[in-house]
Simulated assay, not measured.
Amino acid sequence: MHRILLIAVPLFGLCIAFEWLWGRLKGRDTYRLSDSISSLSQGLMSLAVAAVTPLFQNGMYAWLQPHLALVRPSVWDGWWGWAVAIVVYDLCDYWLHRVSHESALFWAAHTVHHQSEHFNLTTALRQESFYAVMGWPFFLPMALLGMPLEQYVAAGLFVLLYQFWIHTEHIGRLGWLDRVFSTPSNHRVHHAVNPRYLDKNYGAVLVIWDRMFGTFAEETEPCVYGTVKPLHSWNPIKAVGQFYGELFDRARATPRWADRIRVLFKSPGWAPPGTSTTAEPDGDRLRQSRFDPAVSRLDRWRAVSLVAMTGVASAVWLDASDDMSEARNLVAAAVIAAGLYAAGALLARGTDGGGDRGRRTRRLRGWGLYLGAMALCAGMIAILA
């Protein structure tokens, strides 16, 4: 699947460029460079994790389907079988998505997708690294129905690619389509932290699941994007681990083992007795300015070129990953993570300040970080190409 996604990358890039240009022409630019780099970094991280966890991507389904199938796979032959597979997959995905907002351990994996305080097509590529690793049991109903692996994979790819176009603020209400499908208006609601919008509109392709199960909300007020507790960091490793760290702190804060287990499976806003957490957005959160610290021009373009180099290294690696050992894939994934970490660190450096000596030290550290990460990625390309 990751190879198909890499083929789609040029189209994604063209769409992102068009949306950015359209926003500039209309005086409504929804992009910020640091935020977009952060989102693209998470997309590359998710591809890296997928490459080193093939068992959880499609392997579990391939292994279990022959043992669980209650219906002969041949029943699904024909075009209509592929259409049914998409609908069933979308329903399974609704419940996975819903649980990922209502259960803390699953939210820890899913929260990455919601951390951006902007809403544009790069947000669509801000994919979760551990979502598929934790979510595969939700699709076992398809195995019970005997749907072949090819239909399961194709349906998952369709549902994933469909969601790309709904991450935009430049498409308004779409009439009857908003009542049936997940559309930009419906999905803006899903990404918002406005109290009336929280935990709504989970459907990936069809929003009728939300209407059926009571989780639908129409877009009636301007959306404030992000998470209830903002990330306020460009560090991709911190982004992935932020809520896991919060869960650990909550569990450590209570002496009762039963409460430590509850921390993992109750809602993300639940905390053991005697501890506190931010459960709901308040007025200050809704009025809070977006995280966008100043970055020097040099660091901006170093970060851009570094993410581009990391992207090329990812493409070369993922094209060969199926034929590589698990150990070599893990090393390659570490190189990708190092490159993305360095790009985030460059964006977090701020602008030069202090005396001449301090500025020189900062510049040397910046170049060391940049050149070291570029050398790692270039070395991996040279070895694998």
Rank of each mutant, 00 (worst) to 15 (best):
V84L: 06
M1L: 12
R365K: 14
P281M: 10
G214I: 01
R360W: 08
D249M: 09
L286Q: 07
A294W: 00
V193H: 13
N329G: 02
D90R: 03
A279R: 15
T168M: 11
S116R: 07
V84Q: 00
E150Y: 12
A69C: 01
G78T: 03
L25W: 11
V312H: 11
D282K: 02
A327W: 08
A279C: 09
A217D: 11
Q151E: 08
F158C: 12
R287C: 12
T123V: 10
A155H: 01
S116Y: 14
W63H: 03
G379F: 04
V112R: 00
S103R: 15
F291V: 10
G214Q: 00
G214K: 01
R211W: 06
C223S: 06
L340W: 12
D284K: 15
Q242N: 13
G241S: 11
L198W: 11
A217S: 14
W317R: 05
I37F: 09
G379V: 04
E326G: 02
A143M: 03
M147K: 13
H2R: 06
E19M: 07
W209V: 05
Q65Y: 07
A108T: 02
T220N: 04
A239E: 13
S100D: 03
A104L: 09
A348V: 04
V71K: 06
L64P: 05
P148A: 10
K229I: 12
G350L: 03
S276A: 12
I208V: 13
L25M: 13
E117T: 05
R262T: 14
M1Y: 01
T220V: 10
V335Q: 03
E128Q: 15
S100N: 03
T351W: 00
H2F: 00
A334Q: 08
W63V: 09
Y225G: 05
G59W: 07
T123Q: 08
T278C: 06
G214L: 00
M134N: 08
I336M: 12
H101K: 02
M1W: 00
A83L: 00
R290L: 15
F216H: 15
M60Q: 04
K266T: 13
R32N: 08
F138N: 14
P66A: 02
F130Y: 14
V52K: 02
G274Q: 01
A345W: 09
P268Q: 09
R179G: 14
W20A: 10
V193R: 13
N120F: 10
S46A: 06
F181L: 13
G214W: 01
V133G: 00
L340N: 12
S46R: 00
L347E: 05
A253S: 02
P66I: 03
D259L: 14
L145E: 01
L264H: 00
I381F: 13
W317F: 13
R302Y: 14
A239V: 09
Y131A: 01
P148T: 05
D259T: 13
D29E: 13
A334R: 07
G13P: 07
R360N: 10
E221R: 04
L125M: 15
L91R: 08
R300G: 06
A334S: 15
I261E: 10
A327N: 00
T111M: 15
P230Y: 01
L157V: 12
W270G: 01
L149C: 11
D35R: 02
G81Q: 01
A253F: 01
L33N: 05
S267W: 15
H67F: 08
T183G: 04
S296E: 06
L40Y: 02
G269N: 04
V307S: 08
V263A: 09
A83C: 04
R72Q: 11
D352V: 09
